Computed example of a mutant assay.
Amino acid sequence: MMAAIVPNTPSVPLRYSTPVGGVAGTSFKPEHLPAILDAGPQRDFFEVHAENYMGAGGPPHRALETIRRDHPLSLHGVCMSIGGPQPLDKAHLARFRGLVARYQPALVSEHLAWSTHETSFFNDLLPLPYTDATLRCVCDHIDQVQEAIRRPLLLENPSTYVAFQDSSMSETNFIRSVAERTGCGLLLDVNNVFVSATNHGFSALEYLADFPLAHVGEIHLAGHAEQADDEGDLLLIDSHDGPVTDAVWKLYEIVIQRRGPVPTLIEWDSKIPDWPMLRAEAAAAQTILDHCAETALMENRHAA
């Protein structure tokens, strides 16, 4: 049955299937392809949403195959509904597995969220209560995904706008428990931390101090939008439609100093800028990553 839905493997060998290290990358947008090709192979990687490539072929796959020949790839799922109470959609999981097999991405990730209910699919990443029952369900779903793709999955912390009264543990403790029980890695979205901290009135620094950084295998950075809630208070939206803010850059530097360099992705999914502007955001992240690596190298030399 898998043969009917897994796309054919490209004829050109794919060269990147190992971790990309402390490198900054960007979301891949087809309109940037000519500029990317003109620049030639770079020290970077590209991330795509898996659901945009679940067809068998056509222009999306031709563009992605072109990028994949010379650049590492991060495959980011947005519709697996890891946190949902229902069983995982087997057809969706099979398509996801097929993409992993086809493109051999360096990184594979999904969200700690849910987006389906019975036969309905929501165009959003919805929060979940942090309870023992939810923990068991999330771990079971991650086990199924990792068994299907035969590799660890990176789980992304959410941006949230509501909290559940019946939550019995903190978000950081919940995420830590998931990583320890399933062996999955974590994708730390620093912008999500800042958005949630602002919306719920907690300290982003305290959240990061309690976050299990040792499990982090990738970091996301993005822009957010400012709105007002019904009471006129500031409400941040994880919009991915602008540059990374100064506050998020500062948090990112703190994380890198504590965790060390890890692959870092600039997400920009609407109001797409020209390629030079997006590339400049990645270059700013790369500067922070390189500075951290150089500092660690000098400290090791002095220690020796």
Rank of each mutant, 00 (worst) to 15 (best):
residue 292 C to A: 15
residue 60 P to F: 04
residue 258 R to D: 15
residue 92 H to R: 11
residue 242 G to C: 12
residue 163 A to M: 09
residue 92 H to V: 07
residue 162 V to P: 03
residue 18 T to V: 08
residue 226 E to D: 08
residue 277 M to H: 12
residue 243 P to E: 14
residue 174 F to K: 01
residue 222 A to E: 06
residue 192 N to M: 10
residue 139 C to S: 12
residue 1 M to H: 12
residue 76 H to N: 05
residue 186 L to C: 08
residue 209 A to F: 01
residue 268 W to T: 02
residue 178 V to H: 04
residue 297 L to T: 11
residue 29 K to G: 12
residue 25 G to L: 09
residue 1 M to E: 13
residue 44 D to P: 04
residue 199 N to V: 10
residue 42 Q to H: 04
residue 283 A to Q: 14
residue 136 R to T: 15
residue 121 F to D: 06
residue 205 L to W: 06
residue 85 P to D: 15
residue 264 T to L: 09
residue 47 E to P: 03
residue 16 Y to P: 00
residue 42 Q to L: 13
residue 215 H to Q: 14
residue 19 P to F: 13
residue 119 T to E: 12
residue 119 T to I: 10
residue 226 E to M: 05
residue 167 S to M: 06
residue 119 T to L: 10
residue 11 S to F: 02
residue 46 F to P: 04
residue 302 H to N: 11
residue 85 P to H: 13
residue 154 L to R: 04
residue 97 R to M: 06
residue 208 L to Q: 02
residue 104 Q to N: 11
residue 293 A to V: 10
residue 39 A to K: 02
residue 290 D to F: 07
residue 114 W to C: 01
residue 44 D to N: 07
residue 135 L to Y: 06
residue 161 Y to V: 07
residue 12 V to G: 02
residue 268 W to G: 02
residue 67 I to L: 15
residue 298 M to K: 12
residue 50 A to R: 01
residue 87 P to K: 05
residue 157 N to Q: 01
residue 79 C to Y: 03
residue 290 D to G: 01
residue 254 I to N: 00
residue 75 L to V: 06
residue 87 P to T: 08
residue 302 H to G: 03
residue 85 P to W: 11
residue 52 N to T: 03
residue 243 P to F: 10
residue 187 L to P: 01
residue 198 T to W: 09
residue 28 F to D: 02
residue 201 G to D: 08
residue 213 L to F: 07
residue 112 L to Y: 05
residue 109 S to D: 07
residue 168 S to P: 00
residue 147 E to N: 12
residue 50 A to V: 02
residue 107 L to A: 10
residue 126 L to Y: 03
residue 238 D to C: 09
residue 4 A to I: 08
residue 49 H to K: 01
residue 226 E to Y: 00
residue 247 A to S: 13
residue 95 R to N: 10
residue 99 L to W: 05
residue 32 H to K: 03
residue 145 V to A: 07
residue 202 F to K: 03
residue 32 H to G: 01
residue 39 A to M: 06
residue 271 K to Q: 12
residue 225 A to T: 14
residue 144 Q to P: 04
residue 28 F to V: 00
residue 132 D to A: 15
residue 249 W to F: 13
residue 44 D to A: 14
residue 250 K to N: 10
residue 69 R to P: 04
residue 304 A to P: 00
residue 166 D to E: 14
residue 105 P to Y: 02
residue 104 Q to C: 08
residue 235 L to P: 03
residue 12 V to C: 03
residue 164 F to D: 07
residue 219 I to N: 08
residue 122 F to G: 03
residue 96 F to A: 07
residue 157 N to E: 06
residue 170 S to K: 01
residue 27 S to Y: 01
residue 299 E to R: 14
residue 193 V to Q: 05
residue 271 K to S: 11
residue 87 P to A: 11
residue 211 F to I: 01
residue 37 L to Y: 06
residue 55 G to P: 02
residue 58 G to V: 01
residue 74 S to H: 11
residue 85 P to G: 12
residue 259 R to D: 14
residue 224 H to V: 02
residue 18 T to Y: 08
residue 21 G to Q: 09
residue 123 N to A: 12
residue 137 C to P: 00
residue 26 T to Q: 13
residue 16 Y to H: 15
residue 200 H to Q: 13
residue 211 F to T: 02
residue 146 Q to T: 08
residue 212 P to Q: 11
residue 264 T to C: 11
residue 177 S to M: 03
residue 183 G to M: 08
residue 53 Y to Q: 00
residue 151 R to M: 14
residue 43 R to K: 14
residue 249 W to R: 05
residue 175 I to D: 06
